[in-house]
Design a protein around this nucleic acid. Sequence first.
DNA 1: CTTGACCTTGCCCCAGGGGCAAGGTTCGAC
DNA 2: GTCGAACCTTGCCCCTGGGGCAAGGTCAAG
Lengths: 239, 239
Amino acid sequence: MLTIGQLADYAGVTTKAIRHYHERGLLAEPDRDSAGYRRYTAEHAVKLVKIRTLAHAGVPLARVKDLLDADPDTLTAAIAEIDHDLQDRMAQLRRTRDQLAQLRGGDRLFVSAEVADHLDDLRTFGVSERQRLLERDGWILMHTASPEDALLWITEKRELMTDPEFRALYLEYDAAYDWSPDDPRLPALADRTRKWFTDHHSRSETGPVDNPTIARLAAQSQPGAASPAWDRLARLMNG
Amino acid sequence: MLTIGQLADYAGVTTKAIRHYHERGLLAEPDRDSAGYRRYTAEHAVKLVKIRTLAHAGVPLARVKDLLDADPDTLTAAIAEIDHDLQDRMAQLRRTRDQLAQLRGGDRLFVSAEVADHLDDLRTFGVSERQRLLERDGWILMHTASPEDALLWITEKRELMTDPEFRALYLEYDAAYDWSPDDPRLPALADRTRKWFTDHHSRSETGPVDNPTIARLAAQSQPGAASPAWDRLARLMNG
DNA sequence: CTTGACCTTGCCCCAGGGGCAAGGTTCGAC
DNA sequence: GTCGAACCTTGCCCCTGGGGCAAGGTCAAG
């Protein structure tokens, strides 16, 4: 006859857990000795090991209780299901590990693969970090509005970025961020941009892509980070 | 600017969780719009994804809070440690799966490997199920008293079982369980048993093995399952 | 006969949210 | 222009699976 501590050691659980199982009705309360101590039999040990195994597998105690006196077929089916669940959880852990590894890396964790590739491209093109952040945040906002549209747009934008002239315009926009709003280069940049868009917009077949300009994207994502030069550019383009 | 629901969808958490993170100080409360709704920026989204990733990895929220503004070295070290923990948990899940698979099998989950082998042997020898259960429970009780001694005893017992004469005695004890206490075969069985023990006890070198007889084992493990014939045998042996 | 290791009940506490109440708001459809 | 659905707000209580601690009673060894 075992005390609660011996039983706990045998099954690899705490005495507290055993009392908890008593309260939940999973394990029958054993007889008490003259001092009021619980005295357990080997059968309690066997049942407790079953409970421990199921509980460790993440089965809710209420369900453990049902399973303990289920017929063998039900039990077999339940075990198969629980095992499935365990496999799922291992797969989930694997995914979490992957994500964790990316936590101290780039932006892949925060944006879609396409956007992440785009951001990588921007870096190789020599785009400023500020601009990269602005883009990242812009794409995040787009994605929340409509993941499908965001996918369409990023796909188109990446194709645009293959055009050397578009890249040159993009880089000049990036540089223009810090210019004075009176900088004489701004009207010329606006002209070239307008020209480029009129030249290429006809070629674009994906109709509804009323492509948000870089400036609007940035303004939307970081209200406080507005650039006077970009504001001027926006006025020049619309006016 | 995102509502709480949009942010929640983007990060793959519930709105409730986001509010929870606000309460815990993990995520800064954003500005409210004119209706009092929270309005989030892309930076909130980025931070929330970090929080989600760490929280999913099982990091306590209090620690997540610390990690969010830790320096890169600390973060790297912490991530390595968390990843280690994740691997441990995967290994644990694997072990749990193995144990789960044994739940609908034999007794391997409840007793040591040696005892389990012994119980398997008993089955091949044609020992009754009742007797096997009695043995199993006896070994469980022994194990709780002293795992080391239990290992010594089971090793010795398994060696004894290689002796055909011992096996024959064992099987007759098993059969005798149901006999009448007046059965004339009982004194003869007691004699043969006593003779066997005096013949072999001298050969036994593991001194302190004052081998508990089968009857005592059984009586200890299942007080209610006592057999009058076995009681008689015990008296014949001691008297 | 004391000391340390047990055991007893009872109560409160934790993470990480879920559920529901009792409203106010916004948006698209008709 | 108004209606309903789907949002949002705060607040409170609830859950699992125990852990921790208090305030005792008990047992075995030196």
